[in-house]
Protein backbone atom coordinates (compact mmCIF):
# COMPACT_ATOMS: atom_id res chain seq x y z
CA UNK A 1 0.00 0.00 0.00
CA UNK A 2 2.70 2.38 1.02
CA UNK A 3 4.59 2.14 -2.23
CA UNK A 4 1.40 2.73 -4.13
CA UNK A 5 1.04 5.99 -2.30
CA UNK A 6 4.54 7.33 -2.69
CA UNK A 7 5.81 6.14 -6.00
CA UNK A 8 3.19 7.47 -8.39
CA UNK A 9 2.74 10.81 -6.68
CA UNK A 10 5.46 12.76 -8.47
CA UNK A 11 4.73 11.10 -11.76
CA UNK A 12 1.15 12.12 -11.28
CA UNK A 13 1.76 15.79 -10.83
CA UNK A 14 2.26 16.77 -14.43
CA UNK A 15 -0.69 14.82 -15.69
CA UNK A 16 -2.94 16.09 -12.95
CA UNK A 17 -2.33 19.65 -14.05
CA UNK A 18 -3.97 18.97 -17.35
CA UNK A 19 -7.55 20.03 -16.76
CA UNK A 20 -10.26 17.48 -17.12
CA UNK A 21 -12.14 17.49 -20.36
CA UNK A 22 -15.79 17.92 -19.67
CA UNK A 23 -18.51 16.97 -22.09
CA UNK A 24 -22.18 17.47 -21.48
CA UNK A 25 -24.35 14.55 -22.44
CA UNK A 26 -28.09 14.27 -21.98
CA UNK A 27 -29.58 17.55 -20.78
CA UNK A 28 -33.29 18.01 -20.29
CA UNK A 29 -36.11 19.46 -18.23
CA UNK A 30 -38.31 16.57 -17.13
CA UNK A 31 -41.97 17.37 -16.41
CA UNK A 32 -43.23 16.28 -13.00
CA UNK A 33 -46.81 15.35 -13.84
CA UNK A 34 -49.58 12.84 -13.27
CA UNK A 35 -47.76 10.15 -15.24
CA UNK A 36 -45.43 9.74 -12.26
CA UNK A 37 -46.95 7.88 -9.30
CA UNK A 38 -46.61 9.27 -5.79
CA UNK A 39 -43.83 7.84 -3.71
CA UNK A 40 -45.82 5.91 -1.08
CA UNK A 41 -43.49 6.74 1.82
CA UNK A 42 -43.55 10.43 0.98
CA UNK A 43 -47.32 10.43 0.48
CA UNK A 44 -47.88 8.76 3.86
CA UNK A 45 -45.54 11.21 5.57
CA UNK A 46 -47.36 14.15 4.01
CA UNK A 47 -50.93 13.03 4.67
CA UNK A 48 -51.34 14.47 8.19
CA UNK A 49 -49.72 17.77 7.15
CA UNK A 50 -52.03 18.02 4.15
CA UNK A 51 -55.07 17.23 6.31
CA UNK A 52 -54.21 20.07 8.66
CA UNK A 53 -53.76 22.45 5.74
CA UNK A 54 -57.09 21.39 4.30
CA UNK A 55 -58.90 21.89 7.60
CA UNK A 56 -57.55 25.42 8.08
CA UNK A 57 -57.33 26.62 4.53
CA UNK A 58 -60.24 24.87 2.88
CA UNK A 59 -62.79 26.97 4.80
CA UNK A 60 -65.21 28.76 2.47
CA UNK A 61 -64.86 32.54 2.56
CA UNK A 62 -66.98 34.50 0.07
CA UNK A 63 -68.34 34.15 -3.44
CA UNK A 64 -66.50 36.03 -6.20
CA UNK A 65 -68.66 35.42 -9.28
CA UNK A 66 -66.41 37.49 -11.58
CA UNK A 67 -63.10 36.70 -9.91
CA UNK A 68 -60.45 39.38 -9.36
CA UNK A 69 -57.52 39.43 -11.72
CA UNK A 70 -54.19 41.19 -11.85
CA UNK A 71 -54.64 41.80 -15.57
CA UNK A 72 -52.39 41.02 -18.48
CA UNK A 73 -49.76 43.56 -19.52
CA UNK A 74 -51.64 46.71 -20.52
CA UNK A 75 -54.73 45.80 -18.52
CA UNK A 76 -55.55 47.34 -15.17
CA UNK A 77 -54.79 45.39 -12.02
CA UNK A 78 -58.28 45.18 -10.54
CA UNK A 79 -57.20 42.70 -7.90
CA UNK A 80 -54.54 45.23 -6.89
CA UNK A 81 -57.13 47.99 -6.75
CA UNK A 82 -59.27 45.87 -4.42
CA UNK A 83 -56.29 45.13 -2.20
CA UNK A 84 -55.39 48.84 -2.04
CA UNK A 85 -59.03 49.79 -1.28
CA UNK A 86 -59.18 47.15 1.44
CA UNK A 87 -55.93 48.35 2.91
CA UNK A 88 -57.06 51.97 2.90
CA UNK A 89 -60.37 51.16 4.62
CA UNK A 90 -58.66 48.98 7.25
CA UNK A 91 -56.05 51.67 7.92
CA UNK A 92 -58.73 54.35 8.34
CA UNK A 93 -60.55 52.11 10.78
CA UNK A 94 -57.33 51.43 12.69
CA UNK A 95 -56.50 55.10 13.30
CA UNK A 96 -60.04 56.46 13.26
CA UNK A 97 -59.08 59.11 10.71
CA UNK A 98 -59.39 59.40 6.93
CA UNK A 99 -56.62 57.76 4.92
CA UNK A 100 -56.32 59.55 1.59
CA UNK A 101 -54.14 57.15 -0.32
CA UNK A 102 -53.07 53.51 -0.27
CA UNK A 103 -50.29 51.99 -2.29
CA UNK A 104 -49.13 48.41 -2.69
CA UNK A 105 -46.88 46.54 -5.08
CA UNK A 106 -48.14 44.29 -7.86
CA UNK A 107 -45.17 41.99 -7.31
CA UNK A 108 -46.47 41.14 -3.85
CA UNK A 109 -49.75 39.76 -5.22
CA UNK A 110 -48.80 36.25 -6.19
CA UNK A 111 -52.01 34.85 -7.70
CA UNK A 112 -55.41 35.83 -9.10
CA UNK A 113 -58.70 35.21 -7.33
CA UNK A 114 -60.58 32.75 -9.52
CA UNK A 115 -64.30 32.99 -10.24
CA UNK A 116 -66.55 31.22 -7.77
CA UNK A 117 -66.48 30.34 -4.11
CA UNK A 118 -63.27 31.59 -2.51
CA UNK A 119 -61.53 29.69 0.24
CA UNK A 120 -59.09 30.90 2.89
CA UNK A 121 -56.22 29.37 0.93
CA UNK A 122 -57.01 31.53 -2.10
CA UNK A 123 -56.21 34.66 -0.12
CA UNK A 124 -53.02 33.04 1.15
CA UNK A 125 -52.00 32.37 -2.42
CA UNK A 126 -52.61 35.98 -3.41
CA UNK A 127 -50.76 37.30 -0.36
CA UNK A 128 -48.44 34.68 1.12
CA UNK A 129 -46.18 37.28 2.77
CA UNK A 130 -46.41 38.39 6.37
CA UNK A 131 -46.40 42.07 5.39
CA UNK A 132 -47.99 44.43 7.86
CA UNK A 133 -50.24 47.35 6.96
CA UNK A 134 -48.60 50.57 8.12
CA UNK A 135 -49.76 54.17 8.03
CA UNK A 136 -47.49 57.10 7.31
CA UNK A 137 -47.90 60.78 6.52
CA UNK A 138 -46.86 62.14 3.15
CA UNK A 139 -47.29 65.50 1.45
CA UNK A 140 -49.47 65.73 -1.64
CA UNK A 141 -46.31 66.15 -3.72
CA UNK A 142 -44.88 62.98 -2.22
CA UNK A 143 -48.08 61.07 -3.03
CA UNK A 144 -47.69 62.11 -6.67
CA UNK A 145 -44.03 61.14 -6.56
CA UNK A 146 -44.94 57.66 -5.20
CA UNK A 147 -47.37 57.23 -8.11
CA UNK A 148 -44.62 58.35 -10.52
CA UNK A 149 -42.09 55.91 -9.09
CA UNK A 150 -44.62 53.10 -9.40
CA UNK A 151 -45.30 54.06 -13.01
CA UNK A 152 -41.66 54.12 -13.99
CA UNK A 153 -40.77 51.00 -12.01
CA UNK A 154 -43.63 48.71 -13.00
CA UNK A 155 -45.95 50.68 -15.30
CA UNK A 156 -48.30 51.73 -12.48
CA UNK A 157 -48.67 50.07 -9.10
CA UNK A 158 -52.03 49.32 -7.44
CA UNK A 159 -53.31 52.27 -5.47
CA UNK A 160 -56.47 53.64 -3.93
CA UNK A 161 -57.70 57.23 -3.56
CA UNK A 162 -56.27 58.76 -6.76
CA UNK A 163 -56.78 58.92 -10.53
CA UNK A 164 -53.70 58.79 -12.73
CA UNK A 165 -53.43 59.88 -16.31
CA UNK A 166 -50.48 60.05 -18.67
CA UNK A 167 -50.96 62.21 -21.78
CA UNK A 168 -48.90 64.20 -24.29
CA UNK A 169 -46.30 62.18 -26.20
CA UNK A 170 -43.71 59.66 -24.98
CA UNK A 171 -41.09 62.36 -25.67
CA UNK A 172 -43.03 64.98 -23.71
CA UNK A 173 -45.31 63.11 -21.32
CA UNK A 174 -47.69 64.85 -18.95
CA UNK A 175 -48.54 63.12 -15.68
CA UNK A 176 -51.83 64.15 -14.06
CA UNK A 177 -52.70 62.81 -10.62
CA UNK A 178 -55.87 63.91 -8.83
CA UNK A 179 -57.83 62.59 -5.86
CA UNK A 180 -60.35 59.92 -6.80
CA UNK A 181 -63.17 62.51 -6.95
CA UNK A 182 -61.20 64.56 -9.49
CA UNK A 183 -60.16 67.30 -7.06
CA UNK A 184 -56.57 68.54 -7.38
CA UNK A 185 -53.93 67.39 -4.92
CA UNK A 186 -52.47 70.17 -2.77
CA UNK A 187 -48.73 69.46 -2.95
CA UNK A 188 -48.08 70.87 0.53
CA UNK A 189 -50.93 69.21 2.44
CA UNK A 190 -50.01 66.29 4.74
CA UNK A 191 -52.23 63.24 4.31
CA UNK A 192 -52.38 59.74 5.81
CA UNK A 193 -51.16 57.00 3.53
CA UNK A 194 -51.53 53.23 3.94
CA UNK A 195 -48.85 50.90 2.63
CA UNK A 196 -46.95 47.83 3.83
CA UNK A 197 -43.96 47.65 6.14
CA UNK A 198 -42.14 46.02 3.25
CA UNK A 199 -42.58 48.99 0.92
CA UNK A 200 -42.02 51.52 3.68
CA UNK A 201 -38.78 49.69 4.52
CA UNK A 202 -37.48 50.21 0.99
CA UNK A 203 -38.77 47.03 -0.67
CA UNK A 204 -39.48 47.09 -4.39
CA UNK A 205 -37.78 50.43 -5.03
CA UNK A 206 -40.37 53.10 -4.23
CA UNK A 207 -37.93 55.38 -2.39
CA UNK A 208 -40.37 58.21 -1.60
CA UNK A 209 -42.39 55.94 0.72
CA UNK A 210 -39.38 55.98 3.03
CA UNK A 211 -39.98 59.69 3.60
CA UNK A 212 -43.16 58.78 5.50
CA UNK A 213 -43.59 60.61 8.81
CA UNK A 214 -45.21 59.43 12.04
CA UNK A 215 -45.22 55.72 11.24
CA UNK A 216 -48.14 53.79 12.72
CA UNK A 217 -47.89 50.01 12.72
CA UNK A 218 -51.39 48.55 12.60
CA UNK A 219 -50.27 45.09 13.71
CA UNK A 220 -52.49 43.68 10.95
CA UNK A 221 -51.03 41.72 8.09
CA UNK A 222 -52.22 42.73 4.66
CA UNK A 223 -53.52 39.18 4.29
CA UNK A 224 -55.54 39.48 7.49
CA UNK A 225 -57.31 42.63 6.32
CA UNK A 226 -58.15 40.87 3.04
CA UNK A 227 -59.51 37.85 4.92
CA UNK A 228 -61.51 40.11 7.24
CA UNK A 229 -62.97 42.02 4.31
CA UNK A 230 -64.08 38.82 2.57
CA UNK A 231 -65.62 37.46 5.76
CA UNK A 232 -67.46 40.73 6.37
CA UNK A 233 -68.89 40.73 2.83
CA UNK A 234 -70.07 37.16 3.17
CA UNK A 235 -71.62 37.87 6.56
CA UNK A 236 -73.52 40.80 5.02
CA UNK A 237 -74.81 38.45 2.31
CA UNK A 238 -72.70 40.18 -0.34
CA UNK A 239 -70.36 38.94 -3.02
CA UNK A 240 -66.81 40.06 -3.67
CA UNK A 241 -66.80 42.09 -6.90
CA UNK A 242 -63.90 43.79 -8.67
CA UNK A 243 -63.57 47.59 -8.37
CA UNK A 244 -64.29 49.65 -11.49
CA UNK A 245 -61.38 50.14 -13.91
CA UNK A 246 -60.12 53.62 -14.86
CA UNK A 247 -57.66 54.52 -12.11
CA UNK A 248 -54.74 54.46 -14.49
CA UNK A 249 -55.06 55.86 -17.99
CA UNK A 250 -51.75 55.08 -19.63
CA UNK A 251 -51.97 54.74 -23.43
CA UNK A 252 -49.98 51.90 -25.04
CA UNK A 253 -47.20 54.09 -26.46
CA UNK A 254 -46.34 55.25 -22.92
CA UNK A 255 -46.43 51.70 -21.57
CA UNK A 256 -44.04 50.72 -24.34
CA UNK A 257 -41.72 53.61 -23.46
CA UNK A 258 -41.85 52.62 -19.78
CA UNK A 259 -40.93 49.03 -20.63
CA UNK A 260 -38.01 50.26 -22.65
CA UNK A 261 -37.03 52.61 -19.83
CA UNK A 262 -37.26 55.56 -22.20
CA UNK A 263 -39.95 57.54 -20.41
CA UNK A 264 -39.05 60.44 -18.15
CA UNK A 265 -42.01 61.70 -16.18
Amino acid sequence: MRSLFIVPLLATLAAAQAPAKVKAGLVQSIPVDGSIPDDPVMAAYLAPYAAKIKASFGQPLVKAPLGLFRGRPGEENLLGYWVADTMRAAAAKAIGMPVAFAFTNSGGLRANLRRGQLKVEDIYEVMPFENEVVIIELTGAEVIQVVREGLLHRGGEPCSGVLVKVSGTPENPILTVTWADGKPIDPTALVHVATTDYLYGGGDSIPTLRKGRNLVRTGLTLRQVMLDRCAALDKAGKELLPPAPGRYQVPPEFREAIREKKLSL
Binding site: V22, G25, I30
Partner: peptide, 11 residues
Protein backbone atom coordinates in the same frame (compact mmCIF):
# COMPACT_ATOMS: atom_id res chain seq x y z
CA UNK B 1 -39.96 20.15 -13.66
CA UNK B 2 -36.79 18.39 -12.66
CA UNK B 3 -33.64 19.42 -14.46
CA UNK B 4 -31.08 16.90 -15.60
CA UNK B 5 -27.54 17.51 -16.83
CA UNK B 6 -25.18 14.62 -17.50
CA UNK B 7 -21.44 15.22 -17.74
CA UNK B 8 -18.66 12.94 -18.89
CA UNK B 9 -15.21 13.79 -17.57
CA UNK B 10 -11.97 12.67 -19.11
CA UNK B 11 -8.81 13.40 -17.17
Amino acid sequence: NLGRMDFAVTR
